[in-house]
Design a protein around this nucleic acid. Structure first.
Lengths: 334, 334
DNA sequence: TTGTACGCGTTATCAT
DNA sequence: ATGATAACGCGTACAA
């Protein structure tokens, strides 16, 4: 890849280098380096002199030089479809916390919701010599991992068989939702899903539990947006309905609105369960019961996986279990 | 700062270096470098040979070496109180887009909502030799900018007199809200604010317009959380109320809930205007009218400011104008 | 147009 | 415990 940069400016801060400190302290640069790295085998006296000299010149080792000689950047690249999606934000939070504990940092590479540029974004990150990479919700498929980043960590429910992945047991999530609605005595039940593997797995678990109870269910398909949820809700209401399980909180917001608009009260006439338990769930009216996806923990696990890969430790994929968070959009039962 | 890293592993990818390409193409490394940098003065013939050789060895210039010799990292550090806040996410989006256009990347340094660690976070970013920095909503005060990052860009409404800042005209925002409510004929008006400069400015503009109309208003104070909005709403309702202006969308969600709980309908009995127009505004019930803060554009402007600083171009602070986004929580008027 | 050679700031090896 | 010194990969005078 040929890179041309416009408006180039060379920044030579001319901050004191390790040599200046060595001269100031009357020692060799090797000793200075030792003080800042492997604390061992340097006498308390010279160590003090070096610390003083460094403080005097307000010296700090340059990561530029260090990275070159060590052959690593202490950077982990992140590919996120859209940073402003709250669920992803929470995952980033988990990633960032774990990386920070290991003196590493997260390099942002948003893929701008255009999956065709995802590889470009990855190459941009690679151009910064990232030590590892984490991809959230990629839809590019195998093209991305097989090329130059075979050991990137994925939180990408749409793609199966990734070697290093952190995932949610979506089927279990669907089962939890079904059990919750069944326990509350609902019988005329609907599912609002979306295209793709993630929704399919949630539906599978949901359908299994309903089948066990001898029940069928109606279904509608959206695209995780509120608008699509509104339409799906309207479609569902053409026939009597007891309860709905919606594969995403944002879509659930749309379903709730459809119910309001139809004059139906939630949960006394229709119960609603969303998915993700993103931060909008407790803000909806009524507050939305939702299948919680432990986004922070999943992010943290992905970061840990990336660190293990960097340190060449055994890195095994991890699956998280969802959990029902009960709020006002479902009836209490005892 | 003395850095000690546990579980260190040296990664020498042994990817082909510039030397290998030079050998393969039968030229000197200088010529190879020229091909990948200043496109000029290299014959089409040798250029082609070099490109081929590079492709053969799948060579790409190492940013590690390049950064060292150029003395810059092509990184911009970001300090964000909490990445999962949607408004900040949108700002990051704007920052990221502009940086990417200039082959730079955003290095995340979340300050974890603990302002006392903000300086640590900044030092962590500095440890990566970032070329510039952007601080969102800092509450640390002057301590941060004056030290080692005097030229960092701020989107921090709580701190005045920052040299490089991107801000919203909050006073104007308050004025817009007041005018909107006055035009709809409301007279018993309330303001729900919070502690700090940002809320004070919004209130100032709001109060000015009300005073011009010969009106007084009641006030309550929260902390931008939904819970505090709920409480503030309940407090306000002890006396009759026509309309409320709330200094944040999340707090407005709480106020809406207080109104619901009191059996008041919005907007026919009480109108509500929020602030920020974050992505929760259209999800609330009813959909919240809000004073829009152009978060994406503000992020983009901050990134541009940072780039100007890096390139030593004149960098002037920028102020954005808010705008009313009308939805269902206020009455239409003609 | 191309090559030589030095320097960027650091770590790490090998002496001492 | 400390010091020389050779890398690391690249950009760029300066020379040819």
């Amino acid at each position: 890849m040929i890179t041309r940069l416009a408006e180039e400016v060379t920044l030579r801060p001319r901050n004191g280098s390790i040599r200046d400190v060595a001269r100031q302290a009357g020692v060799s640069i090797a000793t200075v380096s030792r003080v800042f790295n492997d604390a061992a085998s340097v006498s308390p006296d010279t160590r003090a002199r070096i610390i003083d000299a460094a403080a005097l010149l307000s010296y700090e080792p340059s990561s530029l030089g260090r990275n070159l000689v060590r052959g690593r950047s202490y950077l982990v690249g992140l590919i996120v479809p859209n940073i402003s999606v709250p669920l992803y934000g929470t995952m980033l939070h988990g990633i960032e916390d774990v990386l920070a504990q290991h003196k590493m940092s997260a390099l942002l590479g948003s893929s701008l919701d255009r999956s065709d540029t995802e590889i470009q974004v990855a190459q941009g990150l690679l151009g910064h010599s990232v030590d590892a990479g984490i991809v959230i919700n990629s839809r590019v498929g195998v093209a991305l991992p097989v090329q130059r980043m075979p050991d990137w960590v994925h939180i990408s429910p749409e793609i199966a068989d990734l070697p290093y992945r952190v995932e949610l047991d979506n089927e279990k999530g669907g089962r939890l939702a079904a059990l919750e609605l069944l326990a509350a005595g609902h019988r005329a039940i609907g599912y609002v899903g979306a295209v793709g593997r993630e929704s399919a797995e949630r539906e599978r678990g949901f359908a299994q539990e309903l089948a066990l109870a001898g029940l069928d269910y109606r279904r509608a398909t959206g695209d995780y947006s509120e608008t699509s949820g509104l339409e799906a809700g309207q479609e569902m209401l053409r026939e009597p309905l007891d309860a709905v399980f919606v594969a995403g909180d944002l879509m659930a917001a749309g379903v709730l609105r459809a119910l309001h608009d139809a004059g139906l009260s939630v949960p006394s006439q229709v119960a609603v369960i969303g998915f993700d338990d993103s931060l909008i769930a407790p803000l909806l009216y009524p507050r939305l019961t939702s299948v919680r996806q432990p986004a922070y923990e999943m992010g943290a696990a992905a970061a840990q996986l990336a660190l293990d890969l960097i340190n060449q430790k055994p890195a095994t994929p991890k699956t998280f279990m969802p959990q029902i968070v009960r709020r006002e959009s479902t009836r209490a039962f005892s």
